[in-house]
């Protein structure tokens, strides 16, 4: 029996020339240069779209988010859980705890969904009115897709099928002392439940672990804050002691966990006028976030790892 021979199949494609690899790489490089030039041209000539709220997705995703993306990936090493609880399409309201004196938690949640959710959705934040009174911050927030946390805006967003996020604790949550970390504050007046009921949007509870330790607030310069019309002025172990260096957040380990959605459509829009139901749903959402906070805290090995 003759030795088995390898019979070459005809029309075998010739081996790829080794030059192609560098060429492809150069091609990528050229593509990105061309894309960057086109981007620059669009920005310089105003040839881009913003929506009614002033959201500029092109600028936001590519430019404003870039430094936060580095924070997300390298500094806080954010871990997401339950992303499949966030619907791929249609209006939905993410409700999360708020902490850390600087609203980094809001932007990290935005990035979690933009970069890691399969549908890469834009999370539209509902911000406090202070955000829109601060020069410089206000236009930046609008470009990131944030709008005012009020009934009209929330319902307009949800009605248009957008994914919105609200932090019902507000300043009580983000400006609370470090000693009260991971203790949910009062959930406003439950306005977010009313908006979800009126638009039939599901509520996705979201627990953010890690933001509490970024700027541990050990004191509050109330009188100085009042002078500038701010709700609080934090004293952290490094701020204002180390000056600008104190603005660097501590590299805590983050977990952002999305919980089982609370369906609201079956109650009907009229249910928003039933205060008992609104209170009950508010409590239910608040409880599930508090539980998720404890669960994820227990699973985190340490504050920094």
């Amino acid at each position: 029996m003759p030795e088995a021979r390898v019979i070459p199949i005809r029309e075998v494609p010739p081996p790829e020339p080794p030059e192609t690899e560098p060429v492809a790489a150069a091609g990528d490089w050229e593509e990105s240069l061309a894309a960057a030039l086109a981007f620059l041209r669009r920005r310089l000539t105003g040839d881009y779209e913003v929506d009614d709220f002033g959201f500029d997705p092109e600028l936001s995703d590519a430019v404003i988010m870039a430094p936060f993306r580095a924070l997300y990936e390298r500094w806080f090493r954010v871990e997401t859980r339950g992303l499949d609880n966030v619907p791929d399409e249609g209006g939905a309201l993410v409700v999360a705890n708020h902490s850390g004196t600087v609203p980094l938690d809001a932007i990290m949640t935005q990035l979690a969904i933009l970069d890691h959710h399969p549908a890469h959705r834009h999370l539209r934040l509902l911000g406090a009115d202070l955000v829109f009174q601060l020069p410089g911050i206000a236009p930046l927030a609008r470009k990131l897709g944030t709008t005012l946390a009020c009934q009209a805006d929330a319902e307009l967003l949800l009605g248009r099928g957008e994914l919105a996020a609200v932090f019902p604790e507000g300043f009580k949550g983000i400006g609370k002392p470090f000693s009260e970390r991971y203790k949910l504050q009062r959930f406003g007046r439950g306005g977010f439940v009313g908006s979800a009921l009126r638009t039939g949007a599901p509520i996705v509870p979201c627990a953010i672990v890690g933001a509490e330790e970024t700027y541990p607030m050990v004191g509050n310069l109330r009188s100085v804050a009042r002078l500038f019309g701010l709700p609080y002025l934090p004293v952290t172990p490094t701020f204002p002691l180390l000056g600008p260096l104190g603005l660097v957040p501590l590299p805590s380990k983050w977990i952002i966990a999305f919980g089982e959605p609370v369906e609201t459509a079956s109650y009907g829009a009229a249910a928003a006028d039933d205060p008992m139901l609104v209170f009950n749903l508010t409590d239910q959402v608040r409880e599930s976030i508090q539980q998720a906070l404890y669960t994820n805290l227990m699973q985190r090995r340490s504050v920094f790892f």
């Binding site: 709220f53 009115d129 829109f132 009174q133 206000a138 709008t147 005012l148 009209a152 805006d153 307009l156």
Partner: peptide, 12 residues
Amino acid sequence: SARDPAVVAEDA
């Protein structure tokens, strides 16, 4: 005002 909704309706 900074506290106005983003899109104002007639009855606002």
